[in-house]
Design a protein around this nucleic acid. Structure first.
Lengths: 182, 182
DNA sequence: TTGCTCCTCACGTCACGTGAGGTGGC
DNA sequence: TTGCTCCTCACGTCACGTGAGGTGGC
């Protein structure tokens, strides 16, 4: 049994978020106290957990409502649609990024480049709009799926052996679940 | 001299967009006809061009208003702030993406992998949330900044020589401005 | 007269945040 | 009594879109 404030704190949400969900009909309290206070029970807690999961995935509230109404295979459909949306949004942002880079490049920008190395690689990725976080996630994927190639790739970047070891060790720790290779 | 509808068509905007800009004070018509029709003159056309450029970069309307008020070096400041914003937004979207992929992966997903090659590379990038467009943009950057390393990198992926040629030729054509190397 | 453009409110969108004004429980 | 939580409106955000209801020009 939770009052609205307690439930909000439990989930790291604001009271007004829960008020809003109630108004939408997305998450109604199980009952009301004699004085009208909202009471949320175990069932609502579970529902809110689901809602939060889907919000983390970026689904819109009305999508979430539909999914919860009829979960069958709507879930993966909805998630895949969301993946497409995300890619579109990222595409738009990248276009903006290139546009801005184009403007800024006109004003300044010029570099000398010799051989391929880690710094150049990183700056290339950044210029293409990839964040530090992206790169880390990507090392994990690489290490998990094909450690040998990862090694050779890091050598290709002229990174010293001990640093390569460190990177790969980190990637292994970070991707908790080992690759399910047959 | 443009009436509101004509100006809207000229810029591919809607009438209501221009009404909104007028209400905000972002783009006021130069004058009004005797019956109150908005008249936009050459000066406003120029201003609207600027506005559209900044909107393409994704700047908010109040930011644009500030920039146009005092363009000095606010422009590049604003654009750089916007780049940061974009990276943050992309970061959030990538987090969502990883989250969704994690859910979906649980349900299905399993692959066998041998050596590094183009397909694996592409699938790795995609799994990390990179689009086809990203990859193309990235090849252009790479080719423009350091063609030799680009060549070696493509060899690293075991891509046949003629395909490498094709890729590099494409990248050279696509990045119109040649690299300004000293 | 018909069809097109123009005008000014005013409300809707999305997911809440932020008061205002008031009550209940310890 | 104090401080905290709860309640219900109602309005603000951002960049417009969409009528409603009416007028002007060819």
């Amino acid at each position: 049994m939770y009052t609205i404030g307690k439930l909000a704190r439990k989930f790291g949400l604001s009271r007004s978020t829960l008020l809003y969900y109630d108004a939408l009909g997305l998450l109604k309290p199980g009952c009301r106290s004699p004085k009208g206070y909202r009471c949320y029970t175990g069932a609502e807690v579970k529902r809110l957990q689901q809602i939060c999961r889907f919000r983390q995935a970026g689904l819109a509230l009305n999508e979430i409502a539909r999914v919860l109404e009829n979960p069958r295979n709507r879930i993966s459909k909805a998630l895949e649609r969301r993946l497409d949306q995300i890619n579109e949004e990222i595409g738009r942002l990248r276009t903006q990024q290139q546009f801005i880079l184009g403007i800024l490049r006109k004003a300044r920008y010029h570099r000398k480049i010799g051989v391929m190395n880690k710094e150049l690689w990183n700056s290339l990725l950044k210029a293409s709009g990839f964040s530090e976080q992206d790169m880390l996630a990507w090392h994990c994927e690489f290490e998990a799926h094909d450690p040998d190639s990862h090694q050779r790739f890091l050598e290709f970047l002229c990174i010293p052996v001990d640093e390569i070891k460190a990177i790969r060790a980190w990637a292994n720790r970070a991707s908790r679940k080992p690759c399910p290779d047959a």
